[in-house]
Design a protein around this nucleic acid. Structure first.
Lengths: 221, 221
DNA sequence: CCGCTCATTCAGCGACTGTTCAGGATGGAG
DNA sequence: CTCCATCCTGAACAGTCGCTGAATGAGCGG
C-alpha cells in the first residue's frame, strides 16, 4: 500500500513516514507542492496525505490540479487548526477527508484506512486464485484454508500482481508500484521476491505467478 | 460512456447526473425500479448506478431480474448505511460493487471508472483473427482455445502486425517498431520471425500473415 | 547487548532466445 | 522459359535473462 506524503515541515514528514512504514505502508515524501504534484502524477499511490500550507504550489492547487487531470487517488488533507484554510473548501476542491493539526498518529492511520476502504482500493474484495485466497483488507493469505504468513514486501508484490488482474507487469512496473519511487537498486530483487512467493504459495500442479520471459510476471488467469 | 442512474430521491439523482455529466458521462435517470428495469433492458448502458431502496421494484429485484435476463452490464449499488439492506447480499444478487450513502462524489466516479476498467468496456486489447486470439495485456495467444507460447520477440512482432489492422508493414517498419532504435543488423531477422510465427500459428486452410512480395507483411483481412 | 527477522546484493548456473548465415524455394519480368 | 530479386528455412552460436543460495546489514524486541 503506497502513500505519498506532501508536507513541508521536515520533522512532521519524517515522523509520519516512519510511523506509516511501521504500519506496513510504503511511503514517499515530497516537501513542496510542485514536487508533490509531480510525484503524484508520475507514481501510482493508493492514497495521498496532503498538507494545505505548502511552499510552491499550495495544497489546494495540488488537489485541484490532480482532480482536473482526472486523477482520483484518495486525498487526506492536513489543515492547521487556526483555520486560515477552511476544511469544507478543501473537500470542495476534491479532497476526500481532512485532519486538523496537531493530530494523533493512530487517528491518522485510522482515517487513512477508512479512506482506502471507502475508495475500494484498500478493500479489493477478497481475491481467490485457485486454492489461494488473498484478503487485501486484512493483509492475509491462505492456501486451502491454511494461513500463510508473508512479510510486508512479499504481500505488496503479490497484491500488486493480483490487482493487475492477469495483465503482465514488468519488473520495472512492479518496482515502481511497490518500492519507494527513488529506489534504484537491482531489479533482481523482484525475482527474489517472486521466488519466495512461489516457494510459499505454489504446490504440485498449481503455480500462482507465471514468468513471461522478456516481459515480466503475471498472476491469475 | 453511458450511465443509467436509478434513484428515487430527486435531489440526489439530479446531483449525481450533473456531476457525472461534468465528467463526460452521458446520464439517464430513472426514478423508480420499474422504469429503471425497463430503461436498462431497452437502452445500452456501460454501467448502472442502482439505489437499493426504491419505490416499485426494489433495487434487489432490478438487479436480479437483469441478471436473470442475461444482462451483465456492470452495476454499482447504493446502500443506506443504516443497513436495512446488506451489501454482501447485493453483491450476491449480481451487483459488481457497492457504495454506502452518503458518499463523496470523487469516490463514486473513481468506483465507476474502476468498474468500467474491470469489466473491460474501457480497455480490452483482445484481438481475434480467424481461430487466433491475441490478448495484448496478458501477452497470451491461443488458437482454437489452445494456448500457444510465443517468445517475447515473436509476440511483439505479431502484436505490431495485428495493430496495423490489415495494413501492409514493410520490414523496415517492423524493425523500427519492434527492435531498438539503433538496430542495424540484417533485416532478414523479420523473415525469420514471421516464419516462426507461421509455424506456430498457421494451420491447414488458415494463414495469419500474408507476404506481400516487395512490400512487406500483412496480418488479418 | 544479543539474537532474530527481513530487505537487499551478489555471483554462478542453466536454459532459452535473438541473431546470423548460407543454401534452397518462389515468383515476376521480360 | 529463364533469370534475378526476394523470401523462406534449418542449423549454429553467443549472449541474455531468470532462478537460486548465500552473505551482508539494518532494524526491532527481548
Amino acid at each position: 500500500m503506497k502513500v505519498l506524503v506532501v508536507e513541508d515541515d521536515v520533522k512532521i514528514a519524517a515522523a509520519v513516514k516512519r510511523g506509516l512504514e511501521r504500519e506496513a505502508f510504503v511511503v514517499d515524501v515530497a516537501n513542496d507542492g510542485d514536487v508533490g504534484l509531480w510525484q503524484a502524477t508520475e507514481g501510482t499511490y493508493d492514497v495521498i496525505v496532503l498538507d494545505l500550507m505548502l511552499p510552491g504550489r499550495s495544497g489546494f492547487r495540488v488537489c485541484a490540479d490532480l482532480r482536473g487531470a482526472g486523477d482520483w487517488t484518495p486525498i487526506l488533507v492536513l489543515t492547521a487548526k487556526d483555520g486560515e484554510f477552511d476544511e469544507a473548501e478543501a473537500l470542495d476542491t476534491g479532497a476526500d477527508d481532512y485532519l486538523t493539526k496537531p493530530f494523533s498518529f493512530p487517528v491518522l492511520v485510522a482515517r487513512l484506512r477508512a479512506l482506502l476502504r471507502r475508495s475500494g482500493t484498500g478493500s479489493a474484495p477478497v481475491t481467490e486464485l485457485g486454492p489461494v485466497r488473498i484478503d487485501e483488507g486484512r493483509r492475509r493469505v491462505s492456501r486451502d484454508g491454511e494461513e500463510i504468513t508473508l512479510t510486508a514486501r512479499e504481500f505488496d508484490v503479490l497484491a500488486h500482481l493480483v490487482r493487475a488482474e492477469g495483465r503482465v507487469l514488468s519488473k520495472r512496473e512492479i518496482l515502481d508500484g511497490v518500492w519507494e519511487y527513488d529506489f534504484d537498486g537491482d531489479p533482481n530483487i523482484v525475482e527474489v521476491y517472486v521466488g519466495r512467493l512461489r516457494r510459499k504459495l505454489d504446490r504440485e500442479g498449481f503455480s500462482l505467478i507465471d514468468t513471461v520471459r522478456g516481459a515480466g510476471y503475471r498472476a491469475g488467469s
